[in-house]
């Protein structure tokens, strides 16, 4: 039996391995790229002369404050929405009457739905091996227990 997690990079072709290596290296550059504005903002907050050019290029501190205000309001609204929905769901669950389960589907209902012979179906439901034959439209035309 194969292990649950299949981590076998050595099975890749040479091209795939080279590509994977290059992408792994390039991945660090992507991380730096995405985190660069945060780092430059941190530097600028620590010392406002340092990195001020980068902060301006990213849109400036005032723009950032304005955007963060909108962002926090939106996040709070989403959180509030979830809380209201949860409260409504809990209340609804408490008030809802419990429905009775439907009776299990018997072989008679199944044979009617699938258009097969009831007796034959019962035999097939007990069989260890069954062959099923179809017509061109996908309707069952034969059940063959072995």
């Amino acid at each position: 039996m194969t292990e649950l997690v299949i981590n076998a990079p050595h099975l890749q072709t040479h091209g795939q391995r080279f590509g994977a290596g290059a992408l792994a290296l390039f991945g660090w550059m992507l991380w730096c790229y995405f985190l660069f504005p945060l780092v430059s903002l941190g530097c600028w907050l620590w010392n406002d002369e340092l990195c001020s050019q980068w902060v301006n290029m990213a849109g400036g501190y005032l723009n950032l404050r304005e955007m963060l205000a909108v962002y926090l309001h939106a996040v709070a609204a989403i959180g509030g929405g979830w809380c209201i929905w949860l409260a409504y769901g809990t209340l609804r669950g408490l008030l809802r009457r419990r429905l009775a389960p439907l009776p299990p589907v018997g072989s008679a209902a199944l044979s009617q739905r699938f258009g097969v012979d009831h007796d034959q179906l019962q035999v097939c439901q007990e069989s260890r091996f069954v062959a099923v034959h179809y017509d061109s439209r996908g309707a069952i035309v034969g059940l063959e227990p072995v």
Binding site: Y33, F34, F36, L38, M57, A58, N63, Y71
Partner: peptide, 11 residues
Amino acid sequence: IPGWTGTLLSV
């Protein structure tokens, strides 16, 4: 340079 909006999205 990713602007603040881009930064927000990536963060």
